[in-house]
Simulated assay, not measured.
Amino acid sequence: MKKIIVALITVLSLILMSYPHISHAAPKGYEERPVELNVNGKFISTDVHPIMDNNRLFIPIRSLASMGIHYSWNATTKVTTLKNKNGEYLKITVGSTTAYKADQPLKMDQAAISKGGRVLVPIRFVSEALGYHVNYEAIRKIVFVNSDDYEFDMNMITQDDLLSARRAAISLPITTDFKLLGLQGTYHEYSFPVGRADAYFLLDGRHCTFVEIKEGKAIAIGQYDDTDRSRTAGKVPPNMVYDTDPIMKPYNKGSVLFMENRDGTAKAAYNDENGKRVELKTKINVYSDIIQPLPDYQ
């Protein structure tokens, strides 16, 4: 028991040492964080991030290829033609709020836009018109798009390959049944229990959100405000005591941290078998690269 407590204290010290340093380097607000795109359980790399405009989310048409949607663009007429795997066509004109599906007019809340040499279309309208489902997760600013036949495989979480399991874990939209304390989201840091992928807590620059994965769903079970530990929500009690609170039970053997940087890189940190702090750094090409390969025992 003493060894467990010592290990936990060491891990928590690692968290508390690194967390304030990163949060102090967060000059940008949550609204400036780019929106990430996940299609059928996979994060997508785009040359232009999805953007939020007037509470509507727009994605570049090039990203639609990852959804199995073919597209063409006529620069003269400013019309993009989209076709799904069932052969259904959708025509959208930049600047127009009327689209056409099988020559039938459809009203759009907002028109497609052109920005930075890229054409962006309202993702919810396009997805639902062509048979996809859209879920926007505000906690991390991620839009999830799933086809009708997509179903998450829970075996992805329990597999022996921890790298793939943890990447699958963060590819699930976080759901919650309590009122969030707020949204910061200027960076993301995940802390997984050693050797596991079925739970993590997410640090976003101010809040800590505890998540567990059950039956193919990532469920937020509680949250606290790191600037005022008396402010909590869900199953986190005010002024939580780390070494005794049940919510920390999965982390009794220690935890592994995966941290997003602001320079296109990510860092992993853990204690090796001798208790020595180890830090790794990697380039992020796609959001899931935050989770890096580690030794098997981690």
Rank of each mutant, 00 (worst) to 15 (best):
Met1Val: 04
Met1Cys: 08
Lys3Glu: 15
Leu12Ala: 15
Ser13Gln: 04
Leu14Ile: 05
Ile15Val: 06
Met17Cys: 06
Tyr19Met: 09
Pro20Trp: 02
Ile22His: 12
Ser23His: 11
Pro27Phe: 05
Lys28Leu: 09
Glu31Pro: 01
Glu32Trp: 06
Arg33Met: 14
Glu36Val: 06
Leu37Ser: 13
Asn38Glu: 15
Val39Glu: 02
Ile44Tyr: 08
Ser45Val: 11
Ser45Met: 14
Val48Lys: 07
His49Ile: 02
His49Phe: 08
Ile51Phe: 07
Met52Leu: 14
Arg56Lys: 11
Leu57Val: 14
Leu57Gln: 09
Leu57His: 12
Arg62Pro: 06
Ser63Val: 07
Ser66Tyr: 15
Gly68Tyr: 09
Gly68Arg: 09
His70Pro: 02
Ser72Gln: 15
Trp73Asp: 12
Lys78Gly: 04
Val79His: 04
Tyr89Gly: 10
Leu90Arg: 01
Ile92Asn: 01
Val94Asn: 01
Gly95Arg: 05
Gly95Met: 02
Ala99Val: 07
Tyr100Gly: 10
Pro105Asn: 03
Lys107Ile: 02
Gln110Lys: 08
Gln110Thr: 07
Ala111Cys: 03
Ala111Ile: 02
Gly116Met: 06
Gly116Ser: 05
Arg118Cys: 14
Leu120Arg: 08
Leu120Tyr: 13
Pro122Glu: 08
Pro122Ile: 07
Ile123Ser: 03
Glu128Leu: 13
His133Cys: 05
His133Asn: 13
Asn135Met: 03
Ile139Ala: 15
Arg140Thr: 14
Asn146Pro: 13
Asp149Thr: 14
Glu151Gly: 11
Asn155Phe: 00
Asn155Gln: 00
Met156Asp: 12
Gln159Val: 00
Gln159Asp: 00
Gln159Leu: 00
Gln159His: 00
Asp160Pro: 02
Asp160Phe: 01
Leu163Ile: 07
Leu163Gly: 08
Arg166Lys: 15
Leu172Asp: 00
Ile174His: 01
Thr175Trp: 01
Lys179Tyr: 08
Gly182Lys: 06
Gly185Asn: 07
His188Arg: 04
Tyr190Arg: 00
Gly195Leu: 03
Arg196Gln: 12
Ala199Asp: 02
Phe201Trp: 15
Arg206His: 06
Arg206Ile: 05
Phe210Pro: 12
Glu212Phe: 13
Lys217Gly: 03
Ala218Trp: 03
Ile219Trp: 05
Tyr224Lys: 04
Tyr224Glu: 05
Asp225Ser: 06
Asp225Pro: 09
Ala233Gly: 11
Gly234Trp: 04
Lys235Asn: 06
Pro237Gln: 05
Asn239Phe: 08
Met240Thr: 10
Met240Asp: 06
Tyr242Ile: 04
Asp243His: 13
Asp243Phe: 15
Ile247Val: 09
Met248Lys: 04
Lys249Pro: 01
Lys249Asn: 03
Tyr251Leu: 11
Gly254Tyr: 07
Ser255Arg: 06
Val256Pro: 10
Met259Ile: 01
Glu260His: 07
Asn261Val: 01
Arg262Asp: 14
Arg262Thr: 08
Asp263Thr: 09
Gly264Tyr: 14
Ala268Asn: 14
Glu273Pro: 02
Asn274Thr: 12
Lys276Pro: 03
Lys283Cys: 00
Val286Lys: 04
Ile291Arg: 01
Ile291Ser: 05
Pro293Ala: 15
Leu294Gln: 10
Asp296Tyr: 12
Tyr297Leu: 08
